[in-house]
Write a protein that binds this DNA or RNA. Sequence first.
DNA 1: GTATAATCGAGACGGTACGTCCTGTCTTCGA
DNA 2: TCGAAGACAGGACGTACCGTCTCGATTATAC
Lengths: 197, 197, 197, 197
Amino acid sequence: MAPNATRRSERSHRAILEAALELVAEVGYPKLTIEAIAARAGVGKQTIYRWWPSRAAVLLDAFVDLGERAAGEEPYVIPDTGDLEADLRGVLRATVDELLSPAYDLPYRALAAEGIVNPEIAAEFVRRVLEPSAQRYVERLRAAQRAGQLAADLDPRIAVELMTGPITARWLLRTLPLTHAYADAVVGMALRGLSPR
Amino acid sequence: MAPNATRRSERSHRAILEAALELVAEVGYPKLTIEAIAARAGVGKQTIYRWWPSRAAVLLDAFVDLGERAAGEEPYVIPDTGDLEADLRGVLRATVDELLSPAYDLPYRALAAEGIVNPEIAAEFVRRVLEPSAQRYVERLRAAQRAGQLAADLDPRIAVELMTGPITARWLLRTLPLTHAYADAVVGMALRGLSPR
Amino acid sequence: MAPNATRRSERSHRAILEAALELVAEVGYPKLTIEAIAARAGVGKQTIYRWWPSRAAVLLDAFVDLGERAAGEEPYVIPDTGDLEADLRGVLRATVDELLSPAYDLPYRALAAEGIVNPEIAAEFVRRVLEPSAQRYVERLRAAQRAGQLAADLDPRIAVELMTGPITARWLLRTLPLTHAYADAVVGMALRGLSPR
Amino acid sequence: MAPNATRRSERSHRAILEAALELVAEVGYPKLTIEAIAARAGVGKQTIYRWWPSRAAVLLDAFVDLGERAAGEEPYVIPDTGDLEADLRGVLRATVDELLSPAYDLPYRALAAEGIVNPEIAAEFVRRVLEPSAQRYVERLRAAQRAGQLAADLDPRIAVELMTGPITARWLLRTLPLTHAYADAVVGMALRGLSPR
DNA sequence: GTATAATCGAGACGGTACGTCCTGTCTTCGA
DNA sequence: TCGAAGACAGGACGTACCGTCTCGATTATAC
């Protein structure tokens, strides 16, 4: 029943991931079908069904693979120049750029949309895509706490979300345009708070 | 080509909206089909296609209608007790409750998921669901600015998102559990900021 | 329940018959729909359903009407020149021409096809189209019997069919081309018989 | 595009042909739908559309298959007892019986009706059903010519139609009842001719 | 000359079937 | 022995018509 992974064709595997990314960009997620992926990859449908349970799982693998190839070997770490606000602006602006870039936008959206409605995919998406990114923020914020640049008693995990949450929500729900200025404003408000000082 | 709205059957209209809400709760959005809605509503498929362009549009109408019936006549306004933090905690906790309630959760998620991938639906969803809610926050924050409880120079629209964004993102992406405590923490951090005071 | 024929709109009546004939020639009987007839005639569907039970009934009326308009006032009679064979050749050749003429071919075929599968239409078609024509043959053959040109003991009704049957069958089933030569051959064989004399 | 016939499911193939014959007998040709055939055969609609272009083509295959199974192995040949008239009466009476038998009547009529309006089907129907039967008559008539029982100069093909045409026409158009007596009368008139001897 | 009632054009309605696309499973055949 | 190829049962799509049913807006007698 369980396929023997050692005999898996790496050639087909890669072709499937590439076909999935190409197709989601070309026709959009709702029209991304297993049949189209198989045809584009020059692969039998069964070869997809053998290794993945759904088109979302294929796309998730493809997207993670895309991220890994883009990142290269060394894992990305948020820089620590001593200026917390500048560092956070930098990383949030980079996030905005990524969310708006064509290569990421469509598959990312597709996976988010699927995850919203499908908890299994959501869990995998969080584990493999969102959580590693969140951890980098948490580390940077912990360093800031140690340096006395951040209130010592606050939960860094929630602090992260105070900045990434607005960005993510605006991107997903398309309430208003997502810009560098917005990222800067979010960082500023989050650090200094809304109350008058 | 365009149907004559004055001859529309109100009976069928209502039955379709109700069937859509029932079915999305029963079988989930991916399995919500026009055929099932028509069958449940005791209606021909063409009667749905005559008035809506897609199942997402049906569900959006149904959801807005649900909100209007729930709200009753008087539009909801965020209370102003003078204690801004308490007022915001109250409304964010209520939002959390709503997002977690079965009647809202599934259709809301479905529309969000559709909107992520479908800009037309997103625009309508924002216009009819999110924007009215955001305006209520903006008004409350403007009142707080006039009362000197909020920094006078900040954009209230972005300030709203500093609080609703984290809630929305956590709910949509299921990164971590969505609770009253989280809502309280978000309000606290947003008002006082992350930097030490 | 039964509509009042005196109030019937002659204008609509004629428009419907014309539309039916035009459409059957343009798109063929299988695609001849009540909706298309109504649209072409500038008439509500109900006006057709009020006066006819089916599209075949409409077409039958239209076809009979066409025949009546073509025939003019005086009813056609098979000529009696004294030369039976020549007279029969003449009328059978005329029948062949009619069957092959575009104005008659398509509606005639349509009604025959419908009648084959639908006994009610068949009965009406026979009564209003085929029978009057058969009677004219019977009369001519009776005259021939009186003149001693035809065996006295044979049933003229069957004798008619010996000549019209082959023509009709070849036309309906398209076994072989329908020509004047074929009509002549049929008349000759029928009169003289297949056995050697 | 073109399906691979070697992989065709014989099981489904047979089930479809049987279902088509059953249904045409039960509900009639106008209500014979692809969906009903598929449901009755326990088959997906696509399996029908993959192998046949229309319901008429399915029914034609089913009817030919029925004829082949009924005929068994040895092809039917018109007997030659030396008495031409008796032999022809026998075969025409058998044809009348067949045309009136429930198993043949409905599918046969359906195909004739379709062929009247649809030349492609007509051509196939003629080639596979009518032509083989006509050839058997032609052979018998040729033998009769050689035996001097039939005028030597007449075209046997047309001679066949002089007898089958009236039968076919009466059956298709339902002008008058189709009986053994009628078949006998047709044979008699055809052999001896209408003219007095 | 109006009333008044049936017919009219129009088209929405609950349905059925169409022919297509895709799902997920299963089978065949060539490398 | 695996994988490409694709046939299969099934289900939903979006469209086209069916025959029924309301709607006003003419009409065309009967008052």
